[in-house]
Design a binder for these strands. Structure first.
Length: 423
RNA sequence: GGAGAGUUGGCAGAGUGGUCGAAUGCGGCAGUCUUGAAAACUGUUGAGGGUCAUACCUCCAGGGGUUCGAAUCCCUUACUCUCCGCCA
């Protein structure tokens, strides 16, 4: 959530920044400022009314003590009248505050100055690529065929047990999943992230904290009996670790990592390009989350990019990095880089990681602050990224590492799988 | 699921109608001492709104009520703990 004083002081920056997302913020910004004005003037009136009745109440107390009940009763009437006024004022005030809040929820984060304008993924900029695309043998297959051929992922079985989008991993397929999770977690903890095991269900407040609510309700699985949501990403429980937290500056930076399954309803997103592992209702992901001093967050962002690069380099998977344009950058993010790996057998790029800097947008909702060197409480910056999402990495490995003899295992993973080929 | 107890500042924990935005301890910050640090001692230290700055207002889990006046009394919701039940 953007902060009102920031919007006030940077009206034009906000409007031109959001225009890069194709978001016309002009009316909302004007309305926010107008509402904030009226909120303030109501607040002042209310404060004055309350101040007066506070003074009178004290007098009443004193009058009673000195036995002047008649005078006290006179004052009581006055206070009652003030109370009527303050009731009206405070109703008006909370109406204005609620409206302001709901307007603020509608404003996405202002993109970083380096983010290009653009409407859709067409306008994303490729800024880096690495690794060579392997030449596959004749008869190379997409992963859903390989999965069947080697009997390592059973989509049909998942259909029976749960439904489409819930694959069953078997044998070496299951082991490879476990290996990837352990490998990613090890890479992350080696880089200084602290490993967390987080709840897979979260309450409503946590969903508001990271912005899944109020407007992405339909994308999450929800247990209405207990009002709990299945997490769509570890970002939700992981970032909410820091909800309502006041840190000392010396505690920054903080980095945590966690493996969780992720659950997404993905309503209405069926169609092309969703075969096999490409889009699922349940998938595994290892996430990294950072809390940073505002002065360091972009340096930390670069560090996260390098970290993910290292992993892909070690797995010897060909990848590229995209700088997302305004229109493709997620609502709460100021900047996002996507990692995509090239799947030779599908002849297309698959998104496997998304690294974002949210600046203070999430921290403002979370009330995540630190005491700065002036002793003032200041919002921290939050960042997160996948390192990595499993299904498409798995798809990439299966497709890019297939040979006529079987699927080779990337060297870095062999200590984790305990085997070097799936055949 | 049943019964009971609780929820107070960064943390722990007192406070049962006005003198309470709140004792005390820990932690944080500053200083004295020290070559430096630790220890000790001294001072300081809740959050939000508002103001040029004061003033002032709000906040003792959330919401509602009683009262001239509520952390304190009542209702309600959420959560936590203990015991019982169930259970991997």
């Amino acid at each position: 959530m953007l902060q009102v004083p920031f919007i006030r002081d940077n009206k034009e920056t906000v409007i031109t920044g959001l225009a890069k997302r194709n978001f016309d913020a002009k009316d909302i910004v004007e309305e926010v400022i107008a509402l904030d004005d009226s909120r303030r003037s109501l607040q002042t009136k209310l404060d004055n009314t309350l101040a007066e009745s506070n003074v009178l109440s004290k007098e009443i107390g004193n009058l009673y003590k000195t036995g002047k009940a008649a005078e006290a009763n006179q004052l009581k009437e006055k206070v009652s009248a003030l109370k009527e006024d303050s009731k009206t004022l405070s109703d008006d005030l909370s109406a204005a505050a609620d409206k302001l809040q709901s307007l603020l929820y509608q404003l996405p984060n202002v993109p970083h100055e380096s983010v290009p304008a653009g409407k859709s993924e067409e306008d994303n900029e490729e800024i880096y690529s690495e690794g060579s695309i392997p030449e596959l043998y004749d008869g190379a297959q997409p992963h859903w065929e390989l999965a069947k051929k080697y009997d390592i992922i059973d989509f049909e079985l998942g259909n029976k047990i749960a439904g489409a989008g819930f694959p069953v991993y078997k044998g070496k397929g299951a082991r490879l999943q476990r290996a990837l999770i352990a490998y990613f977690l090890d890479k992350n903890t080696d880089a200084g992230y602290t490993e967390y095991q987080l709840p897979h269900l979260v309450n409503e407040a946590s969903c508001y904290g990271t912005g899944q609510l109020p407007d992405k309700e339909g994308q999450m699985y929800h247990d209405s009996r207990d009002n709990l949501y299945l997490i769509p990403t570890a970002e939700v429980p992981g970032t909410n670790v820091f909800r309502d937290v006041l840190l000392n500056e010396s505690e920054l930076p903080i980095g945590i990592t966690g493996y969780t399954p992720c659950f997404r309803r993905e309503a209405g997103s069926y169609g092309a390009h969703v075969r096999g592992l490409n889009r699922l209702h349940q998938f595994d992901k290892v996430e990294i989350i950072r809390v940073e001093h505002p002065d360091n967050s972009y340096k930390a962002f670069d560090g996260m990019i390098e970290h993910v690069k290292d992993i892909l380099r070690e797995l010897k998977l060909p990848f590229r990095i995209l700088r997302l344009c305004g229109g493709d950058t997620g609502f709460p993010a100021a900047m996002t880089y996507d990692f995509e790996l090239f799947s030779t057998a599908q002849d297309r790029w698959l998104e496997i990681s998304s690294v974002s800097n949210f600046e203070t947008y999430q921290a403002n909702r979370l009330k995540l602050r630190f005491k700065n060197s002036d002793g003032k409480n200041e919002l921290a910056h939050t960042l997160n990224g996948s390192s990595l999402a499993l299904p498409r990495v798995l798809a990439g490995i299966l497709e890019n590492y297939q040979t006529e003899k079987g699927i080779e295992i990337p060297e870095a993973l062999i200590p984790y799988t305990g085997f070097s080929i799936i055949d």
